[in-house]
């Protein structure tokens, strides 16, 4: 019978809340989940739990964790930087390796901004050879722009029209201030860190990537075709597919993520066989 253990990773930094899913019998591999951010984390959690259980049933040890300042982990979101979260991914990877020493090289599965962070966390890490990206964020500046738009839409629904504009909110950040995103404090430093990710290089080094574009469409969007080109230019070997599914990271209600889980499991199985 597989097991699920919840604990804190408190080796070298703030305690990170984590859940380890350990399969019954032989372990065919290990997967580290990298969460999305802001409200997207809340909306994605149930699907990630179901995915973790499904991969565990297929023989994978799976680790899910909260970055510092997020979920049940130590720290305040407002104080965090991208560097802190990349460090957390490294710590979680070390933990997974220590607890699943017999597994092949671990796979990182990043959801939304978690996928973008995962690609950066590969720098200097030779162990991870395969990465799964679920609707990653190809352009962090645009992503923040959309988050700000979400804020405006909520204001419109509440007050009839928006009270700020994206320009005024960006000016606030540029002046060193903070912007509230559904209760998450987006600091000027974090905004700047995220924007810098857009120009940060990626170290593919022949790693395999499965990128799944989740939308109402059955074909891969233009932005992900471009993103695939960037991945290939950075020496990743990529597989890019479209999965027709609601944008679960944006929805409060339940979304059946089986098509996404199935496509990922299929790719993982192929990689294990080869």
């Amino acid at each position: 019978m597989s097991t699920e253990q919840q604990f804190f990773i408190d080796d070298t930094g703030p305690a990170l809340c984590a859940t380890l899913y350990f399969p019954d019998g032989d372990v065919s591999g290990a997967i580290l989940f990298c969460n999305p951010m802001f409200e997207e984390l809340k909306a994605s959690t149930r699907l990630m739990v179901e995915a973790a259980r499904a991969f565990c049933a297929a023989g994978f040890a799976v680790l899910r964790f909260d970055y510092r300042g997020c979920g049940d982990s130590e720290g305040e979101f407002a104080d965090m930087s991208v560097g802190d979260w990349l460090d957390d991914i490294g710590r979680a990877l070390r933990f997974l390796n220590n607890h699943c020493p017999t597994a092949d090289s671990p796979v990182i599965l990043g959801v939304r901004l978690g996928g973008t962070l995962a690609l950066q966390a590969l720098r200097g890490n030779e162990e991870v050879r395969r990465v799964v990206l679920w609707e990653p964020v190809p352009d962090c500046r645009s992503y923040i722009g959309q988050e700000l738009r979400k804020k405006l839409t909520k204001e419109m629904m509440t007050f009839g029209s928006n009270r700020a504009t994206r320009d005024s909110l960006l000016a606030e950040l540029a002046a060193g201030g903070n912007v509230d995103l559904d209760g998450y404090c987006l600091s000027a430093r974090l905004y700047s860190d995220l924007c810098n990710l857009d120009s940060a290089g990626m170290a593919g080094d022949g790693r395999e990537v499965l990128l799944l574009n989740v939308s109402h469409q059955t074909s891969v969007s233009r932005s992900y075709v471009k993103y695939r080109d960037r991945l290939e230019e950075s020496s990743f070997s990529s597989t890019v597919d479209a999965v027709r599914l609601q944008p679960f990271w944006n929805l409060v209600g339940y979304v059946d993520g089986q098509p996404l889980i199935d496509r990922t499991r299929e790719w993982l199985a192929t990689a294990v066989e080869s």
Binding site: T165, D167, L251
Partner: peptide
């Protein structure tokens, strides 16, 4: 509010227009 934003993006793509913040 979330699906409304999805509609805003949909309108922009379908009709090739830009929905400005002032249009909200």
């Amino acid at each position: 509010s979330v699906s409304l934003l999805e509609l805003v993006v949909g309108i922009e793509e379908e009709f090739g227009i830009e929905v400005e913040d002032e249009d909200f």
